[in-house]
Design a binder for these strands. Structure first.
Length: 839
RNA sequence: GCCCCUGUGGCGGAAUGGUAGACGCGCUCGACUCAAAAUCGAGUUCUGCAAGGAGUGUCGGUUCGAGUCCGACCAGGGGCACCA
């Protein structure tokens, strides 16, 4: 054996052997306990980046670890292959989105294989493959049959650059999540999935997801936004034809006596009725609709209203008349699109009332406040005691609210109800590169599903991207089809599905992939739920909520007996790197700069460079590090090792050259240790104990996804072995180390295993165990404190009694010096741990 | 505005209420070498010659004992945002 381990040779050799022997193909009929490990599948953008490497390394460690523990592991990989970038590439480079995507998949698959992931490539799938999206179309029709899919004319978020509709979740700060331009409002007929039907289930289900980060559960909870309150009606005085009341929703029914106006959204039926005979009202509505939705605009937007000629009667006092306004701050799609304003206890209503000189009445008193004290310069939003509120006076907010609901229900003008912030999921996209929605539009039969035997509806190949918009819409031959019901000439639906639909069930297809249907229920259930799902926190709401919904929808229609798809979730941090900016403001890549003392200079020009913030690796900031040359230089194990060390996995990891070098050093260190195996006899109790402690620690750390801790323990163990004299125990420790390193650095581990003369591959070796009794040392180090401060340590036999410990501690010179002749007031003794002398 | 998270050496970060700074990076010194790389050894929170003293964002509290628990504040990050 040579002095150095050569990863370039070994990596490929083991990767080929794993592949040739089909080691990582999961057997659905295995008797072993089944474990499903999954990382969020990548979009095939062209190249693997460090974020992928980190993500997949973590999953790979768990997968290999579980395998060594005797589990049958499913660890698949595929491609989230539909989406905008392929169309953009098509426009820019005149290539077909399909050929671009498939070429990228090929390149990225090769890259992943060179990192040595234990993946079951036999189950690889790509969502742009008709063999995948055809089944998706079938599932979509199943959901349609179950009434979970509907079509509705609705105001949508229109991205004027991408020329498509966006889901609410894809609008960030009023801008398209991809294009970054302000979203416009537009009315279109869209397909929707009834996610709101599952709002409560999705909320309740979060409680069972104990192995999810609290943060993600909280984000989903907020997103679903459950509010309990009262729906009730205000009768109108002289309402227009057909409208004699206005329904509102409130969570603060206790403030009902503080109402001083009603406000309607611009698209409320009563607002439209008002506009019919009043050009001023119509103009105001237009103004409201023109308003942008960006955060900046919303923040600075003044509360404005238009006073209609209608008045509403207060439900508890029909003599009290409230003016009805159309107001720009009322949301059309939350609650009923109308509200009653309580300026005293809602800041937004306060601003509105101030502007239009409406009365601001106190109906809740807090602390020392008294009923007669006026509201100050701000609304008082918190709970308190009802005042100036007739029969509610003296009741606490909660009780007052309940009392109003009780009376409203009794009198029949309102009912307790719950509403959600969550909206139904609009899935129509006016794009080419997506799953065609399997419907046909017939002039006489309406919207007709494509018959099952005609699935998949395949995307046409001959399309052009010369003009913006949806090429499917211009493709006359593809579009024209006969109506399946009446046979007359009809048109295909040209919208495609949101790509989040594709990723809402891929984990089921991984588990079971028959050719004639989306999945086999029993095979899928054998693997699901995913034991450990790993991905970026950016999917905390969108993807994870949709996938949960889709799974529950399948359960609802009896296709799958699983409620939650991901039993364990882990969101890993990003891989970051310092940024560099040249004098002219342009970004420079790490390869273009070099260190010069404490400063950075541009290598080519020698000009000074400003080093900026450490940020997520991104093309625009040019601070990316391509994994490829790093792999070639240091080998897969060093890259994997570095991805796991240093930072806790949920935090960001800053890429550093010295970090990867340190990792490569450790790989060589393992190799040298294996070469130092002596064959000499003899035991070494301390080293054995250290070995057991390391096994226990590493096992717990991997189970808790604390890879950085596992690695620290392995470094410590390696140091201990290096220092130990030759013995059989030392040789055994080296073997243990190799086993423990195997999930993280599998290539060197196989190489070492082979060198040690073990039979079979290390991927199949059992994970080492230990006897907990062996972890206990004979001697323990006791901390000796005076007044809680450490003064000395003492090594004593384990289990030494309190009196002996106390005596030994008091005898210490340093303790005596601290006591300075005085008598201790109290002595705390924790056996095997510490003695604290209180002076 | 509301909700949540995080503050520990030069850096990444360890610490069931019980020896703060494990482990890694960097740095210093030493060994090996003609020299370098690689490797090995010693050291590395601050302050002090030392004994000692101070020290986990700030201020207070609980406790024999607080990085850890409680309260207030400061700073950074994230999520939601006219949600009735």
């Amino acid at each position: 054996m040579d002095g150095r381990f050569d990863p370039t040779q070994a990596d490929r050799r083991w990767q080929e052997r794993w592949e040739d022997e089909r080691c990582f193909e999961a057997d659905s009929s295995s008797d072993k306990p089944k474990t499903y490990i999954l990382e969020m599948f990548p979009y095939p953008s062209g190249r693997i980046h460090m974020g992928h490497v980190r993500n997949y390394t973590m999953g790979d460690v768990i997968a290999r670890f579980r395998r060594m523990q005797g589990h049958e592991v499913l660890h698949p990989m595929g491609w989230d292959a539909f989406g905008m970038p392929a169309e953009n590439a098509a426009m820019e480079r005149k290539v077909h989105p399909g050929s671009w995507t498939w070429a990228n998949i090929g390149a990225m698959r090769d890259q992943l294989k060179r990192i040595g992931f234990a993946l079951d490539w036999s189950r690889e799938l790509a969502t742009c493959d008709p063999a995948y999206y055809g089944h998706e179309q079938a599932l979509f029709l199943d959901l349609f049959d179950a009434g979970l899919v509907y079509r509705k004319e609705s105001e949508v978020n229109w991205d004027p650059v991408d020329m498509t509709v966006l889901a609410n979740e894809q609008v960030i700060d009023g801008k398209g999540w991809r294009s970054g331009v302000p979203v416009e409002r537009k009315k279109l007929s869209q397909w929707f999935l009834k996610i709101t039907q599952f709002a409560d289930e999705l909320l309740e289900g979060l409680g069972s997801l104990e192995r999810w980060p609290d943060k993600v559960r909280l984000m989903q909870e907020n997103w679903i936004g459950k509010s309990r309150g009262l729906h009730f009606r205000f009768a109108l005085v002289d309402g227009p034809a057909g409208i004699d009341e206005v329904e509102v929703f409130t969570t603060r029914s206790d403030t009902i006596f503080g109402a001083s106006f009603l406000a309607l959204s611009a698209s409320h039926p009563l607002a439209l009725a008002a506009a019919e005979h009043d050009p001023d009202a119509a103009a105001f509505i237009l103004e409201c609709n023109a308003g942008g939705t960006s955060a900046a605009e919303v923040e600075t937007l003044e509360k404005k209203g238009f006073k209609t000629k209608f008045e509403a009667k207060h439900p508890f006092n029909s003599n009290l008349r409230l003016p009805v306004y159309i107001a720009n701050f009322v949301l059309a799609n939350y609650g009923t699109g109308a509200l009653f304003g309580v300026p005293g206890h809602d800041q937004r209503d306060y601003e509105f009332a101030t502007r239009y000189h409406l009365s601001i009445k106190r109906v809740v008193a807090q602390g020392r406040d008294v009923a007669s004290e006026p509201i100050g310069t701000e609304a008082e939003g918190g709970p308190g005691i009802a005042v100036n509120s007739d029969f509610l006076d003296g009741l606490e907010t909660r009780d007052a609210a309940a009392e109003v609901i009780r009376r409203a229900e009794e009198a029949g003008w309102g009912r307790a109800s719950t509403i959600y912030r969550l909206r139904d999921w609009g899935v129509s996209r006016q794009r080419y590169w997506g799953t065609p929605i399997p419907f046909i539009h017939c002039d006489s039969c309406g919207v007709v599903p494509v018959p099952r035997d005609q699935l998949p509806v395949i995307l046409p190949e001959d399309v052009s991207f010369e003009i913006p918009g949806n090429p499917l819409d211009r493709h006359a031959a593809w579009k024209s089809v006969n109506c399946p019901t009446c046979g007359a000439a009809a048109r295909r639906e040209t919208d495609t599905l949101d790509t989040f639909v594709d990723s809402s069930w891929y984990f089921i297809r991984f588990a079971s992939q028959p050719s004639d249907r989306p999945f086999d229920r029993f095979e899928a259930e054998a693997w699901l739920p995913v034991a450990q799902y790993i991905g970026g926190v950016e999917h905390a709401i969108l993807h994870l909520l949709y996938a949960r919904f889709w799974t529950r929808a399948l359960q609802h229609i009896g296709q799958l007996g699983i409620a939650e798809p991901f039993a364990g979730l882990f969101t890993q941090g990003m891989v970051t790197h310092e940024t560099y900016k040249a004098g002219d403001g342009s970004w420079l890549s790490p390869g273009e700069v070099r260190r010069d003392g404490d400063d950075w200079v541009h290598i080519e020009s020698g000009h000074p460079v400003a080093s900026g913030r450490v940020e997520k690796m991104s093309k625009s900031k040019r601070n990316t590090i391509d994994p490829e040359p790093i792999l070639a230089k240091h080998g897969a194990d060093a890259v994997r090792w570095f991805m796991l060390s240093d930072s806790p996995p949920e935090r960001d990891l800053e890429w550093s050259e010295s970090g990867i070098e340190g990792a490569a050093r450790f790989v060589q260190r393992v190799w040298r240790l294996v070469a130092s195996v002596s064959g000499e006899p003899g035991d070494d109790k301390d080293l054995e104990r250290k070995g057991y402690a390391t096994i226990a620690g590493v096992t717990a750390a991997i189970e808790g996804l604390q890879f950085n801790k596992a690695i620290a323990l392995l470094y410590e163990f390696a140091s201990a072995i290096e220092k130990a004299p030759a013995s059989a125990a030392r040789d055994g420790a080296v073997r243990t180390l190799v086993l423990l390193v195997a999930p993280m650095a599998p290539h060197i581990a196989e190489e070492c295993w082979d060198f040690l003369g073990e039979t079979g591959m290390i991927i199949d070796a059992p994970w080492p165990g230990f006897d907990p009794a062996m972890l206990v040392a004979d001697e323990v180090t006791i901390a000796i404190q005076v007044n809680g401060k450490l003064r000395e340590t003492l090594t004593v036999a384990r289990g030494l009694d309190r009196a002996a410990l106390e005596a030994q501690a008091l005898a210490l010179e340093k303790v005596q010096r601290q006591l300075d002749g005085g008598t201790p007031r109290k002595i705390i003794v924790v056996p095997d741990r510490l003695v604290n002398i209180v002076a």
